[in-house]
Design a protein around this nucleic acid. Structure first.
Length: 419
DNA sequence: TCTGGGGTCCTAGGACCC
DNA sequence: TCTGGGGTCCTAGGACCC
């Protein structure tokens, strides 16, 4: 049996945990540059604000219903997430952190007759310890657990937890579930399926396996089996290293200057390398892309990306940033206003598995020491005290007009010695 | 004026090999 | 006129997730 624990309106709930004035009001949290709505309180949902909606389109609704709009505060959300996950890991023998606001728990050890009470216990404990409301779905497969959690959220009388394991209960739910709500069925598949008259999860389950295989491949078959109660997706080990590390941003305005783009690319590379070193990995492939504003069809459009493979994987900011700038030089074209850029590090290995080089080991050891020193200095404060000169000292131009404080991780009060 | 960011897995097709 | 068969590896693109 699997339990899915899903934090309700997570980003909004994080903000509410530190500002009780937000309780009971419409609240939305915005993406980078205050661009899109990425989280909504129930009140905001009821008012008709859509997930992913561009903020400028939601402005009227926001004004009319007195909804509070906040710029996103990811440092706060990831810290709150970590706390929730820590609490959850004390409640189950195995946990898989699935996203910033969701985790699967292995609850095979709990007796079926106690699972409902267990689920409510999880809800209460997280609420009490962290102040975040969660919904819990329990079922024999992950896909069904997702559906159960959805029900738990929708029906208050379930008190936040829904156990779904009797065959007749499952059949009843599937018949009422629009296919789009099923984990693994996105917009494209929904459209394709509806063309065949497959509208609910029950319609889907009624199709022959081969029919599903032919149109949706192996992934489709897995979803199909999981809906039928046969577990195909097991608990995964969170300790496996990521396969890529991406740092990409939209700019508030169009960037035409190569130097400004270069500073941004160096910053993306720097952040990427910090992430690599934190998780003890190194990357061999450095991909850079730049793109103009695709929403401005009246302006000349250009987008391009390219990659360089290093001879040996690296986690050195010096090496990766230099390489990223080299890629940027290759793809940059003058005369365009760039709106988006990014650095993607791929071909990632555990740093411990690095092949010893024939040449340049000395150089690498130097970089290793240098990076260690830089990381330890920068870890002491929020601001990047030590950085590559090529990154510059001006931060990327971004719009953040509704920021909230770093409630849980504010180090600004701590005096930092300038070196 | 204003339109996010970071991930995963699968598959088809090309290159190359014997 | 007639033009094999079977394998591997890699990559780009498409689907999905939050």
């Amino acid at each position: 049996m699997f339990a899915l624990v899903d934090c309700n309106n997570f980003f909004v709930s994080c903000e509410r945990a530190f500002d009780s004035r937000l309780e009971g009001r419409g609240v939305v949290v915005l993406s980078n540059n205050d661009g899109c709505v990425v989280a909504r309180s129930n009140e905001a949902k009821a008012a008709g604000v859509k997930m992913g909606q561009p903020f400028f389109q939601a402005r009227d609704l926001v004004k009319r219903y007195g909804i509070v709009a906040l710029s996103s505060n990811y440092r706060l959300y990831s810290d709150m997430s970590r706390r929730v996950m820590t609490t959850l890991s004390e409640l189950a023998p195995a946990i898989e952190v699935y996203s910033i606001d969701e985790a699967f728990l292995d609850v095979s050890g709990v007796d079926i007759s106690e699972l409902e009470v267990y689920g409510r216990g999880v809800v209460k404990t997280v609420r009490r310890n962290i102040g975040i409301p969660v919904s819990v779905g329990v079922a024999p497969t992950k896909t069904l657990a997702k559906l159960a959690a959805h029900l738990a959220k929708s029906y208050p009388k379930l008190q936040g937890a829904c156990l779904m394991c009797r065959e007749q209960d499952i059949a009843k739910v599937l018949a009422k579930t629009p296919i789009r709500e099923v984990w693994g069925i996105g917009r494209r598949y929904e459209k394709m399926l509806s063309g065949f008259g497959v509208v609910t999860a029950a319609d889907f389950v009624d199709r022959p396996r081969e029919w599903v295989k032919a149109r949706m491949g192996l992934g489709g078959v897995r979803t199909w089996l999981e809906l039928k109660g046969e577990a195909c997706i097991g608990m995964e080990d969170n300790r496996e290293p990521q396969k890529m590390v991406a740092n990409t941003r939209s700019f508030a305005g169009a960037v035409t200057d190569f130097e400004e783009l270069r500073r941004a690319v160096v910053m993306f590379a720097t952040t990427g390398c910090e992430k690599l070193r934190k998780q003890g990995t190194a990357a061999r492939r450095v991909t850079v892309f730049i793109a103009t504003d695709r929403h401005r069809e009246d302006r000349p459009q250009y987008s391009s990306g390219a990659a360089i493979d290093l001879p040996v994987a690296s986690d050195s900011t010096l090496v990766i940033a230099r390489t990223a700038v080299e890629v940027l030089r290759r793809i940059y074209r003058e005369g365009y206003g760039y709106k988006r850029a990014g650095v993607i590090l791929g071909d990632i290995f555990p740093a411990s598995q690095l092949q010893p080089e024939l040449f340049g080991t000395e150089e690498r050891e130097k970089h290793e020491k240098l990076m260690k020193a830089v990381d330890s200095i920068n870890a002491a404060g929020q601001k990047r005290l030590v950085r590559l000169a090529s990154q510059g000292f001006k931060n990327i131009n971004a719009r953040r007009e509704h920021t909230t404080p770093q409630y849980t991780t504010n180090w600004d009060d701590i005096p930092v010695v300038k070196v």
